[in-house]
Write a protein that binds this DNA or RNA. Sequence first.
RNA 1: GCGAGCGUAGUGUAGUGGUUAUCACCGGGCGUUGCCAACGCCUGAACCCGGGUUCGAGUCCCGGCGCUCGCACCA
Length: 559
Amino acid sequence: MVRAMAEESGSRLERMSGMLKRRGFILPAFEIHGGSKGLYDFGPNGGRLRNRVNQIWLDHWISLGNVAEISCPTITPYEVLEASGHVGEFSDFMTACLVCDDVSRADTLLENDHTNPDSLSKIELDNLLKMVQPECPSCGANQWGPVIAQNLMFNTTIGAGNSGRAAFLRPETAQGMFTSFPSLYRHFREKLPFGAIQVGKGYRNEISPRQGMIRLREFNMAELEYFIDPEMPLEHDFTRWSDYEFNLISEAEGEIKQSISAAVDAGIIRHGTVGYFIAMTHDFLAKVGIDESRIRFRQHETTEMAHYATDCWDAEILGSYGWVECVGIAHRGCYDLEAHEQFTGKSLRARRDFTEPKQVVVDGWTIDGAVAGPIFRSLANKVKTAVEKLPKTVDFPLILDIDGTPITVEKEHVKRLQRTETVTGEWFIPHVVEPAFGIDRIIWHILDHAYQETTKQDEIYTLMRLSSNIVPVDYAVFPLFEKDGMGQIARMVNDQLNSKSGIVSTYDSSGSIGRRYARADEIGIPICVTVDHQSVEDNTVTIRDRDTGKQKRVSIADL
RNA sequence: GCGAGCGUAGUGUAGUGGUUAUCACCGGGCGUUGCCAACGCCUGAACCCGGGUUCGAGUCCCGGCGCUCGCACCA
């Protein structure tokens, strides 16, 4: 029984994949050259469907009112992804033997020469490799080429030859939004919370892409980075969802059905904004035609979460491959902005005014610039910083340790510093809540959920019950026959529909009328318009609903 | 990356070394039919790539590429 079901669903998957290829939804890319694993085309129907999904996604988040769309390059300099932690987490450092071309992991080669080679940077590995000259495990030589970060990110070079700058194709769109933070902060008049969204391509050089559209090497992603002040009270309105029970799998409670506000109040969802985005994500998925009963939200185990995240929920969708994670909603704390700030020294902060200004009494020492400056020269600034940290009770002269050098500070080098400052606010690194959508995986499940097989005269009849929000073609126009003027009327109706903005209509006159309806059903065209003999008399046509097959007669003018 | 299986028209397939590669659906044209894959005629379209064995390879062998499944990997 179970086996029979498995075989049944297996062949359904095969028939569906065949149909998606035949009808130009999704197909293997570059197939005439043998194809390439993990790369797919969206065909003439899939292309438009993808575009409409992207557009709905953008509109969905922009409707929040404090979210802006941006677009960043996919080519990303090495340093950006080094700062974000991707180089360390995402890749292995490889080096090629100059004699036999065999590639080895640099840290493995240096295992006997360093206590923790895994922790070394690329430059450190390069240097240590030149110094140690370890033996090549395959040929015994000891000449090594430059260290290259390799694996899950695609390497590339900006510019030509030796002067080129190391770079990657981005593994996610997020980093561009973090590095654009100063511009976003100004755009939003320096007021949190606000968000940046972006749809675009991401690249991961997966070791072994599998399962069709589920793991790709180049994929469409859509991410929102929502910047918040961790100390500001949240203002999320959950009333829209007060009657809706979400499928949640929480770390503590297991599988439960609960409203979002209840789950947030109970602390199951650890942050209100995460809860709000879970609800928003659910609405988006429903809008593009995902079956609501096949959506669930699963909380990451504490051990499975990235070390900096405080809460993370995946939206999982049930389809032909089981439950697949399609959206990740993570509270990332201040990790990303802080990482870029530390790496670049540029401020990525927002300002928070105190409710009442604070009086800060400064009572200590500082250097007397006129005297100490010429004496300490380039160290003067560091001496000043050190002196200002001293308590007011110290006696001079005293010896300070500046970068490992003992410096004697005489009484005439310093002066008392006493003043009262009024501090009106403080700078802090905003926290980030990030919903990240795998568009291809979502599209796969849209197609999977829409694909329906019924039986008609002992044959399998295929119907795509796509949401009219995202169908690639909105109308099909058929002349019952292409004679007696029906063809001309049908062409005119088709032109009229196509001239409307955002509407796509196709004209089809080949084969019997039933065959044309069947073709339209397989693409998921919601409305078929048929021009018949009566149309010639009174300018009416029949319109047929895809899902019910029901027809009614309307005037051409009313279309 | 390792192991196993597979690769034939757009799709699904038949083909155990021997004519011009099977069948169905499919696509296009014409005809016919008063609305749900009807029918007739005509027509289009394939052995993944490269080597080898052989008089002869879609078929056997080797390598590559791709697909599927397990193991590993999957911020």
